[in-house]
Design a protein around this nucleic acid. Structure first.
Lengths: 131, 131
DNA sequence: TTTGATGCAAATGTTTTGCATGCAA
DNA sequence: TTGCATGCAAAACATTTGCATCAAA
């Protein structure tokens, strides 16, 4: 199946590339409706799935009940704030050595990992201190 | 709100304590129906939520579209097989130092993390090699 | 008795899918 | 023209919730 150009898909890609929060499908849908008033959720989901499958975007499971999407497809780590539930990218050194630690007592073959950090974000820390 | 005893809840707890796979709510429901033919999914979910809230069991998000539950409530790591999607417990040294690495360039406060390893499990490796 | 727990069914919220039509190549 | 992509609506799915009834304390 050869991909065919579509303005909608292009806009979704650009929208994700232009931000570093991690919007849900519904947020993306709302944003896209301002450009294409008749765009459907089906189109949103189809394109997000398509882009994620091609590795152009990342699909994140953050333990919420919904997926989030990340325009930065390079492997990296995420942080979710316990207070506001906002998801942030983390800039950090590689921790790939944890694969070796995990494999030490394991009889299968560990190829990779995902990790999600949690705590309190800068914004929420500040709010707390200014009370 | 003071908890009141219920046979159903007790059975769910025991069922989870007796296994180290990580069943979904639906799997637990099916198993419980053999003991209580009229038990409802609502009761399953209510009790799983209750037990997870009390910290007696763990609720896992493995990137599937459904939750899994773990009778082992002590913090530990999981592995999901790329091939059969089975989830295993990992016995491994602490990797809590990754919180410090993650916090190095982060202005918020990192309190913890979850990590999920993936690759090929022993069973699937063996199947592959015996072809 | 009081109040939390249950079974049942309906509702919710997210994501997927079928189908006729539209549009890229 | 061909066939992938779209919009629309319905369906699928896991999970939650309202309510009358049941049972623990």
């Amino acid at each position: 199946m050869i991909a065919k150009y579509s303005r909608q898909r292009e806009s979704i890609k650009q929208y994700l590339d232009g931000r570093n929060d991690h919007p849900t499908a519904d947020t993306i849908y709302t944003a896209m409706r301002e450009i294409y008033p008749n765009i459907s959720l089906g189109t949103i989901y189809r394109n997000l799935g398509f882009l994620a499958e091609r590795g152009e975007i990342l699909k994140l499971s953050c333990g919420d009940n919904f997926d989030r999407f990340d325009g930065n497809s390079k492997p990296h780590y995420h942080f979710i704030c316990n207070t506001c539930n906002q998801v942030y990218d983390l800039k950090m050194e590689s921790i790939d050595h944890i694969n070796i630690i995990a494999n030490a007592n394991f009889k299968g073959n560990i190829q990779g990992h995902t990790a999600l950090f949690h705590g309190i974000c800068e914004n929420c820390l500040n709010k707390k201190n200014n009370l």
